[in-house]
Design a protein around this nucleic acid. Structure first.
Lengths: 128, 128
DNA sequence: TGACATCTACGAAATCTTTCGTATATATTC
DNA sequence: GAATATATACGAAAGATTTCGTAGATGTCA
């Protein structure tokens, strides 16, 4: 059912902003992106959004002159797809290995570790 | 130091085979890949390996007519890079969210969960 | 040796992604 | 209503990745 539309790198960067703010115009997105990384023309961002619209990654309200964009998939759904993709492509399904690398790469805070414990407890319950 | 050579999707598929078998010829790789997914010409696989060789992703022994390829980076190193990349690009550094999705996507076995617990314990020790 | 199978090399086409530049429409303001 | 600022649309260049096809080298075997 769900579209197998894996967002590209540039698309993901934009989606991230949309998830964070709920919605945004091209200009807003353009400005934020330009602060964060190498300068990009306004029309580049616009074009990317248009392509994302064609692909069904975003929806837009074109009532006013400056269209307002929103992500169509939730961050959660997208993250889940990306993880599932990585798990399959690079980890041959080994959840353990993946978790191990996560904890190595980005040492989690004490609070996060507590939360992760809970997740494991839940997973164990389901196993029974 | 380490090459920031993020393998592409096709490259990763080949690397996976090399890690699994230690080494392989183009023909072997070609045959396995063709069993697993859409048919690909022999020369396509060959060309990809040649490019990977240029990039330094693999090394090869050309003593015999059919060259024998080996991955140059370990699976561990590569996985670590991929995770770090995903964490940054799609999870804004939230280890928790990532782990959550892993456990949802691929329900871990009881044995794996035990192992993950250990990793958390280690991480907590380091936090102190 | 000569026919045949199998290999590498590699240019180029095909495809995908990202960026750029131009044309044109639509508000705003004097 | 004309000048100006700000939008969208969109073709096409630029890059990166993947695939294809041809040329030629090398091994095998009767």
């Amino acid at each position: 059912m769900s579209k197998q539309n894996k967002p590209t790198s540039a698309e993901l960067e934009i989606l991230d902003l949309l998830w964070e703010r709920g919605q945004a115009t091209v200009r807003e997105i353009h400005e934020i992106i330009n602060e964060r990384r190498k300068p990009t023309l306004y029309t580049t961002v616009l074009k990317t959004l248009q392509i994302m619209h064609e692909k069904g990654l975003v929806e837009r309200d074109s009532a006013s002159k400056a269209h307002v964009y929103r992500a169509k998939q939730t961050q959660d759904e997208t993250q889940k797809n990306l993880v599932s993709d990585l798990l399959e492509k690079a980890f041959r399904g080994s959840a353990l290995k993946l978790v191990q690398h996560v904890l190595e790469t980005k040492p989690a805070s004490a609070a996060e570790l507590v939360e992760i414990r809970k997740l494991i407890a839940e997973a164990e319950d389901k196993n029974k």
